[in-house]
């Protein structure tokens, strides 16, 4: 591609001297920190009451080995993403498409796994309004899954753009901004995995 001459990290001709697109994404992520902050707060507030729930509480339902596997999948998807970005910055479009498709596949695997877990909880009798664990768990992890789903759609869009020749090396910032979003979803899961799954309920 003729325009593929540079990875595109020169000084930006903006009033701040930096990329306003990236700045906008960071501003969004800062606001999303507060959004997930309120969800985590809600979970932590009601967490002490969840230990007493018999039968349909976290001690009976949470499957740590399975959730750990899903966590590894999401963490490794972040690695796949940065390798895709790196490939694009070197002008390796095929490599970028492979790594970004791998990332999207891992995102779908995570969503599928979590959907399977939701169905399992549902079959056991845990629904959104069953008890405080049901409400807090489905709301907190549900909003995270919505974020992952948006990320997967974004990734598929980037791969499609690349196939159509609309994503040159000089446009790597577009991929980098999508990466900021994807990695943010990853760090939110790092927090959720710790406080929802690993800290014992007692």
């Amino acid at each position: 591609m003729a325009a593929d001459h540079h990875a595109g990290h020169d000084e930006h001709a903006t009033t701040t001297g930096t990329s306003h697109n990236k700045l906008m994404m960071w501003a969004f992520l800062a606001s999303d920190c507060m959004f997930f902050g309120t969800l985590v707060m809600m979970y932590m507030v009601y967490r002490p009451d969840m230990a007493e729930l018999g039968g349909l509480g976290p001690n009976d339902l949470l499957d740590i080995p399975f959730s750990s596997l899903m966590t590894f999948v999401l963490l490794m998807s972040s690695l796949a993403f940065v390798l895709g970005l790196s490939a694009l910055q070197r002008g390796n479009h095929k490599g970028m498409r492979i790594w970004l498709s791998t990332t999207a596949f891992m995102g779908l695997l995570f969503l599928g796994g979590e959907f399977f877990e939701y169905m399992k909880f549902w079959d056991e009798g845990l629904k959104l309004g069953t008890n405080i664990f049901g409400t807090a768990y489905f709301v907190t992890t549900g909003f995270h899954k919505i974020h992952v789903a948006i990320g997967v759609i974004w990734l598929i869009g980037l791969v499609a753009m690349s196939y159509r020749g609309q994503l040159g090396t000089h446009q790597s910032e577009k991929v980098e901004i999508a990466g900021l979003y994807w990695h943010f979803v990853d760090i939110v899961w790092i927090v959720i995995f710790t406080f929802v799954f690993l800290v014992p309920y007692r």
Partner: peptide, 29 residues
Amino acid sequence: YMHLKWDDRMFTWFFLAGMFMAAVIILVM
């Protein structure tokens, strides 16, 4: 992975502001 080690410091401050406010929301509530 999000390149804050290399990127413009302004991004770090934006993110830290969001983190700080999230922490305040969590602790106060």
